[in-house]
């Protein structure tokens, strides 16, 4: 097993975390009007806002074991600087937690549609628990695709990447079709995590939701995941099917 204190990756992560803390502190100051006197302020301070979006909380029915999956994001901050939170994971129904990932990022607006994000990711599952440094961007691409692209450096120095995109197509004002795509890749083979070198997997989803309110929408859909290349081979070696097709039903809600 890996040591915790001596790893160079760990040192890098500590540095990232410090940057994160310092920059969000500064974020607050940067969002305030630059006026000398408290009394001369036009308004009260610009509001520090926050939101939490549970984009997917769903039951997946498949050939094998059914599972409950989630994808959550949230932020707190101002226009320019935000503290950003991501989580996704999967738990077998009546079974074990298979995947659980948490991200805490400092997110800074760099253009009208894009934020650059830096921070840490910690995977509780699969084991062994792994911590990563994260550098990425998040925003709205042309044709209204919400895009997140992230580069990860694990505490052992392994390099990997992920890109995901989703979009909302309004069929009516309340009925919304959401296509979704994700791809993972790794520069290294990480045997402990069953990850091969190269493109690891692609995932495609299509969900149809009905917005009872803007904040609350139940949905149904389909989700297909396919492991590729070396990762697929590793999966087969472990007796797993590299193909995963699931029908899903869940709710999307936010505050």
């Amino acid at each position: 097993m890996r040591t915790t204190m001596t790893s160079p990756g760990r040192a890098a992560l500590t540095a990232v975390a410090m940057v994160l803390v310092l920059s969000t502190g500064a974020a607050r100051a940067a969002d305030e009007p630059r006026l000398d006197h408290q009394s001369e302020r036009f308004h009260e301070e610009p509001p520090i806002l926050g939101t939490l979006l549970v984009d997917r909380l769903e039951h997946r029915w498949r050939d094998g074991q059914n599972s409950v999956d989630w994808d959550i994001q949230g932020w707190i901050g101002g226009d320019t600087n935000k503290l950003w939170f991501n989580s996704e994971g999967s738990k077998v129904v009546d079974g074990k937690l298979e995947r659980a990932e948490l991200q805490l990022l400092y997110s800074r607006m760099v253009s009208e549609f894009w934020d650059v994000q830096v921070g840490v990711r910690h995977d509780l599952r699969p084991e062994p628990q792994t911590t990563y440094g994260v550098l990425g961007f998040q925003g709205l691409a042309p044709y209204f695709f919400d895009v997140t692209a992230q580069l990860f450096v694990s505490e052992d120095g392994d390099l990997s990447a992920r890109i995901e995109a989703e979009s909302d197509l309004f069929i009516t004002q309340k009925l919304v079709l959401q296509p979704f795509a994700e791809m993972n890749a790794s520069a290294h083979r990480v045997s402990a995590l069953h990850v091969g070198q190269g493109i690891n997997d692609v995932e495609l989803g299509l969900r149809l939701r009905y917005e009872v309110t803007k904040e609350f929408a139940p949905y149904v859909g389909v989700n297909w995941e396919r492991k590729l290349g070396e990762t697929a081979n590793i999966a087969r070696d472990h007796g797993e099917d590299p193909n995963d097709l699931a029908f899903v039903a869940g709710v999307r809600f936010w505050f």
Partner: peptide, 12 residues
Amino acid sequence: SEGYYNNGKRTL
């Protein structure tokens, strides 16, 4: 959620 109050979005 910028489009929150727009109930007249263009649809399919």
